[in-house]
């Protein structure tokens, strides 16, 4: 049997390791610093993205068929339940309309142009998902060409699902809130507590074993209880105010007993995303 680690092989292994670590550090540095990846990578991703659409279309079609059938079976029960909510909804909608008109008028009177709440949506379809346990990422079919920029929040169904992490010309990567990486998803949120007191904070981590977003380091004395609604606070950057994140499911003390730690149940189902909208602040 030949010697496994001949000196030539050893050299190759060492060189490969060095190059690997170099490339990894480089791509992390680039990802954190720049809004778009280098042009070559962008170009490559665009081409692969186009090819992927050809394969992904039939797969997503099949998936869609299954989901539709499942929905059909649930229709009756759902219909019963929803009927009871319809009356309530119209009432809220009308109220919402009146309030937003009033809001606009008041803003005009006060000469306030755009506030933190205003945003427009860019709709996009999901092409594919990263096959990896750790990088909870999806790839959507809109990019720089449609006006998407890095760090914009992404909404699916009822609430926030993540932020845009990498933008190519015609597709972009969205990091879901279920990503456990140290440097992702630190966005500012607020809890509407009891007695309509507002507690501000940021998302600090994600608990993958129970599917909960964790908001740590809260020193406010305001009382929070299970079921309180959580929205984005619009502070610090590109994320608009008032995007629904989820509801409080547990409030505990942190490891040192000094600050509170709030567990939030995400509103959107992170494992069933077909269409998303990217929120662009006015």
């Amino acid at each position: 049997m030949q010697k496994f680690f001949s000196s030539r092989k050893l050299v190759i292994v060492v060189v490969c390791l060095i190059v690997s670590f170099g490339l990894m550090s480089l791509s992390v540095a680039i990802r954190d610093r720049r809004s778009t990846p280098p042009l070559v990578q962008q170009f490559g991703n665009d081409i692969v993205g186009f090819a992927d659409r050809i394969v992904a279309a039939p797969m997503n079609g099949i998936h869609h068929g299954f989901v539709s059938t499942k929905n059909l079976l649930n229709t009756y029960q759902e219909n019963e339940r929803l009927k009871s909510k319809v009356d309530q909804l119209t009432q809220t909608q009308v109220k919402d309309q009146v309030l937003s008109r009033e809001n606009k008028q008041l803003k005009r009177q006060l000469n306030v142009g755009s506030t933190l709440t205003g945003y427009e949506k860019i709709n996009a379809a999901v092409i594919t998902r990263t096959p990896s346990s750790w990088a909870s990422q999806i790839i959507i079919n809109k990019g720089q060409a449609s006006g998407i920029k890095k760090n914009m929040p992404v909404i699916a169904g009822p609430g926030l699902i993540g932020t845009v992490a990498e933008v190519n010309k015609t597709n972009s990567k969205v990091v879901l809130v279920s990503n456990t990486a140290e440097n992702s998803n630190r966005f500012a949120i607020q809890v509407l507590g009891d007695n309509s007191k507002v507690v501000n904070g940021i998302i600090t981590s994600y608990d993958s074993s129970s599917n909960r977003i964790i908001m740590g380091n809260i020193t406010s004395k305001a009382k929070l209880s299970v079921g309180n609604r959580v929205t984005t606070s619009g502070l610090g950057g590109v994320i608009p105010k008032g995007i629904y994140v989820g509801t409080v499911s547990k409030v505990t003390q942190d490891d040192y007993g000094l600050a509170k730690k709030v567990y939030i149940k995400p509103a959107a189902n992170l494992n069933d995303i077909e269409v998303v909208s990217v929120a662009v602040r006015d």
């Binding site: 690997s20 990894m24 791509s27 096959p131």
Partner: peptide, 11 residues
Amino acid sequence: MYYTGLLGVYV
């Protein structure tokens, strides 16, 4: 490049 955006791993 396409899936993870982290170069130098699976290559």
